[in-house]
């Protein structure tokens, strides 16, 4: 029993668990929006795009968040620019831009192997996060969450019906830029916990799970955030015992919850859909079924 509580006796474990939960909740909030627009892969692309920023920042002695953020913004602008100037499709443009940024990151890191630990960018390492980095992550997450709590209704409107959003005087383009800025910020924070490869799960899975559980957007947000924060906290806790990468444990937990929902969700789960279909067949008179 005492052994189960032992992670709580170490400062570094407490720090890892709370920071993970905060980051997980922030990413989950954004996931509810991303998934609805079919933009999930944008999260993945952004995560890879910030790598050169992080590598460059460590190299030059900047705060890593500043470097990552600048790289993320450059990537987003680059995608918008290439998209508007050519006939290329969106997925092609995303693929082009994010691989070039990721390659640049690997290049910077390999040229200066001492100053940058590329593995910690790609795989994350929350258990060994420095106080300085932890403070950056907390500030990013709190600011992002704060803005989302104030602006989520406006963002929902833009995501649901852009034309209407504009017709009531909202600044649609400004809100889109705000959203991608927040997404870049959250991705930067998540790099520290799960690494560039698994950020995509943080900004997709909680929203996808919640979508199967409710038809109301505010409730969807609450469920997604609860899943994101909960799995991140427990994931960090479990990684103490499993001695595995936090990212792997955390994302596996999210996937398990998704799978359970996928099968057992009361309305949109596979079993519920089957039951409904079966009930409809029974309710239909035989004569109707034959005709």
């Amino acid at each position: 029993m005492m052994e189960l509580l032992s992670p709580f006796t170490y400062d570094y474990m407490l720090k890892a668990m709370w920071v993970s939960a905060l980051v997980g909740g922030t990413c989950a909030f954004l996931s509810a929006f991303l998934m609805l627009k079919g933009w999930s892969l944008m999260g993945d692309a952004l995560a890879h795009c910030v790598v050169p920023g992080v590598a460059g920042a460590y190299l030059l002695g900047f705060p890593f968040a500043a470097g990552a953020f600048i790289a993320g913004l450059l990537a987003a602008l680059g995608m918008a620019f290439v998209r508007s100037q050519t006939r290329l499709r969106e997925d092609t443009v995303i693929g082009l831009v994010f691989t070039s940024f990721f390659a640049a990151g690997l290049l910077i890191a390999s040229l200066n192997p001492v100053s940058v630990n590329i593995q910690s960018i790609v795989l994350g390492n929350i258990l060994a996060i420095s106080d300085e980095d932890a403070i950056q992550v907390v500030i990013i997450s709190v600011v992002t969450l704060g803005i989302l709590l104030v602006k989520w209704k406006d963002l929902m409107l833009v995501f649901f019906d852009e034309t209407h959003a504009r017709s009531i005087g909202l600044n649609v383009n400004g809100l889109k830029v705000l959203f991608f800025t927040l997404l870049s910020a959250a991705v930067v924070a998540a790099l520290q916990t799960v690494g560039a490869c698994l950020v995509i799960a943080m900004v997709v899975t909680p929203g996808a799970t919640a979508y199967l559980l409710t038809d109301r957007f505010p409730r969807l947000l609450a469920i997604a955030v609860a899943i994101g924060a909960g799995t991140s906290f427990i994931g960090a806790y479990l990684s103490y015992f499993l001695d595995g990468a936090t990212g792997g444990v955390l994302v596996t937990l999210q996937t398990l919850i998704f799978l359970a929902t996928f099968f057992f969700a009361p309305r949109y789960g596979v079993l519920a859909t089957r039951r409904k279909a079966a009930a409809a067949v029974v309710a239909t008179p035989v004569a109707d079924r034959l005709s």
Binding site: L36, F160, D161, Y211, T214, D215
Partner: peptide, 10 residues
């Protein structure tokens, strides 16, 4: 056609 009918709104 311009509306996403699967959007979680009532």
């Amino acid at each position: 056609e311009d509306v996403d009918w699967s959007f979680p709104v009532l």
